[in-house]
Amino acid sequence: MQEHAKFKQQVKAIYRLMAGLFGLFIVAAIGILLLVSNPDWTRKKATEVESEYVAIPEVDDFDKIENGIHVRTGLIEADGLMTVVNNCTNCHSAKLVTQNRMNAERWIATIKWMQETQNLWDLGKNEEIIVNYLVTNYPAKKKGRREVLSNIEWYDLED
């Protein structure tokens, strides 16, 4: 009885080994077949995975201009743009610049105020470039004592 059981165990072990080898063979065969039919199979998969995490950096795009607008800041592309970007958007948003519409005298006074109280550096020759850019591209609009209502979005009022 004991010997019979031992024999049964040995048969089982051999069977398991054969089954394992067969499985490995099948996997290898599928792999080879795939590689033969589509040599880029492994590489393609690898790049697909990568593309989820990495955008290919294009340094030029950082100051991309689209439809005449400097995308990163929203400023209009014109003479002096990068001088304005480099001197006026470090501490505050460009939105603070474009919201405001002033003449040269008041921009100069504003620059002086920023230098006296907000740690703005000496702009040297750039001051003229910046002020010219601002008064040319963001001129003051006449509003009078009360503007008409504009940009009204009409809609049917439901009860």
Binding site: A55, P57, V59, R72, T89, C91, S93
Partner: peptide, 29 residues
């Protein structure tokens, strides 16, 4: 669009530190 346009400066202000190598950050990242 505006959020996309948010400058590195404003990113830095929210994070609370300057973004080292900010100038080579891929656009849109």
């Amino acid at each position: 669009n505006f959020v996309k346009r948010a400058t590195l400066g404003s990113m830095a202000s929210v994070i609370g530190a300057d973004i080292v190598f900010g100038s080579v950050l891929p656009e849109g990242y």
